[in-house]
Amino acid sequence: MLEVLEALLFLAFDYAPALVFASLGAVLSERAGVVNVGVEGMMRAGAFAAAVGALVVPTPLGVVLGMLAGACLGAVHAYLCIRWRSEQVVSGMAINLVALAAGTFLLEALFAPTGTPPIAQLERWSLPLLKEVPIVRAASGHSALTYLALALPLAFHLALWRTAFGLRVRAAGEKPAAAETLGVSVSGVRYACVVGAGLLAGLGGATLSTSTLDRFEHHMPAGLGFMAVAAMVFGRWTPLGAFAASAFFSLGNALRIGVASSAPAVLQVVPQGFLLALPYALTLLVLGLQRRRGAAPAALGVPYDPETR
């Protein structure tokens, strides 16, 4: 029983970081008032660039390339939404469609239809003290990104709620006109946050192709970007909430994989489809039960036009 639990936790520790990074990115962008449904596309760009980069340069540098690729798409999103006040959902979905098709096109043109050749996976750290203790030892033996994913949410929480920059970000998302009156450059803050969101989504994608797996596969990230959006909503647009939701979804997914491989009889009673639908159904349920208005930033999705102040 203990071993099963340990294996489950280990799987979740491997699976969660991509979701954590991407949902933190979504939180950052939406806290500043820019809707980000392009996470899926930015993750795909990150996963692809990281895997292709790692074929040539050392894998950690490949991860950086993946982050930059995500940031590039983030910059496109920011430029369209902030400079040209485009419909933010449209821009996000366009980025998804472009990344989906461009990834397939480049993969086919440069490698094979199913995926890139394997790369050197990120080194797995074995933690000297932890690995002796049962259960807790599931936390040992992951790549550096897993430990980063454990630390980053807290850092984001402190940055958003305890620093001047965090206050500016939240002001840009709640009442941009008031922020501008106090001398905050709303578009500057929004640019920083949306590009940062791309950076994080790219990191999430890179995690998939360099840490969770050892290559880019043609269907990556297979909806994980949308699940990151769900985690952000489930976590009420807060870093710690998004982290908790990501961890919860990942644990659920690990449980599903574990059940499917070790106890397939259970799936006769509870079909796999129910388990797959659960994170999304729960998110809808929580949204449906909450008070009206909810936790979303007040100016979310509203392009800021200084002239209509």
Binding site: F226, V229, Y280, L284, G294
Partner: peptide, 20 residues
């Protein structure tokens, strides 16, 4: 309930894929 349709339809898409 004031749930934005972009969020709810994203969820409903995946629920449909999973269940069907």
């Amino acid at each position: 309930r004031g749930v934005h349709e972009v969020i709810s339809t994203i969820m409903l898409n995946w629920i449909a894929v999973s269940l069907v």
